[in-house]
């Protein structure tokens, strides 16, 4: 959908860079127009109301004007500044990972209201005091779905035979699960445990309230992270940089404090 000369949008700010001395170039994910870039003039000046309204991880209602090169934000109102996300290191870092994934998986000017809802819903979920791991995996799986890369989990993606209740394999290249026979012929397929497959099947079809009731033991948690992140990396053909930061934090959290809530 092309944007009118003046328009309003509900946006989550996913990225910002400084533009000149006082302006910011923002990457927004909007409900109405998908991803777009816009300038927040004077956002870096002290006392700028706009500045606080367009920090990353803020859900705002914006008025914009089409510019020659870049659209310009003319009015802003915060709907939710998500202060809870910015008060805890692990929560904030998980949120930054979500923003990076949305940025990497989307192109400008292609509306995807389902993805906007998923993004917003995920930010709200991250404010809850539950395991962030489930929130992240549920987000990854549904991001793939919203983006048209839903993994085939119901039958073997190659021979279409039903999957037995044994260790099967996941192939990023084929975009789904392979039976053991087909996996032998596939160059890069990773074993996928029965529990992991069951969990993914549950998560793809259930709401979040049900999803978070899964008892995610450490081994299952890291297996699911591995499967989804390998697939994501294959699709993007690049590393997701925030993963490195999450790993670094996990290593430095000797007391486990930041991992468990």
């Amino acid at each position: 959908m092309s944007r009118p000369r003046n328009y309003r949008a509900q946006a989550v700010v996913i990225k910002q860079i400084k533009l000149g001395e006082f302006d910011k170039l923002l990457t927004l994910y909007t409900s109405e127009f998908g991803k777009l870039k816009a300038v927040a003039k004077g956002a870096c000046r002290p006392g700028s109301k706009l500045g606080g309204n367009v920090e990353p991880l803020t859900h705002s209602s914006l008025s914009l004007a089409r510019g020659r090169n870049l659209d310009i934000i003319t009015q802003s109102q915060i709907i939710n500044g998500f202060p809870e996300l910015k008060a805890d290191l692990w929560t904030l870092s998980c949120s930054l990972y979500i923003l990076e994934l949305v940025d990497l998986f989307t192109m400008e000017n292609s509306a995807n209201p389902a993805l906007f809802e998923l993004l917003l819903g995920t930010l709200h979920r991250l404010t809850e005091m539950t395991s962030k791991e489930i929130t992240l995996r549920y987000f990854e799986l549904h991001l793939l779905d919203c983006s048209g890369y839903h993994p085939q989990l119901q039958k073997c993606v190659r021979c279409t035979s039903p999957l037995k209740s044994i260790t099967n394999f996941f192939s990023p290249r084929q975009g789904g699960v392979l039976c053991p026979l087909c996996a032998e012929k596939e160059f890069k397929a990773h074993p996928l445990s029965v529990t992991a497959l069951k969990t993914l099947r549950l998560w793809e079809s259930c709401d979040y309230a049900t999803a978070k009731r899964v008892n995610l033991r450490p081994a299952l948690s890291s297996e699911l992270a591995q499967v989804l992140q390998d697939y994501i990396k294959y699709l993007l053909q690049r590393e997701v940089k925030s993963i490195g930061w999450l790993e670094e934090l996990k290593k430095s959290s000797v007391d486990n404090h930041y991992r468990t809530h």
Binding site: A43, C44, R45, G51
Partner: peptide
């Protein structure tokens, strides 16, 4: 006292 998004360098 510093608003979120402000810059130290330009604060009064």
């Amino acid at each position: 006292g510093l608003p979120f998004g402000a810059e130290l360098e330009y604060a009064d």
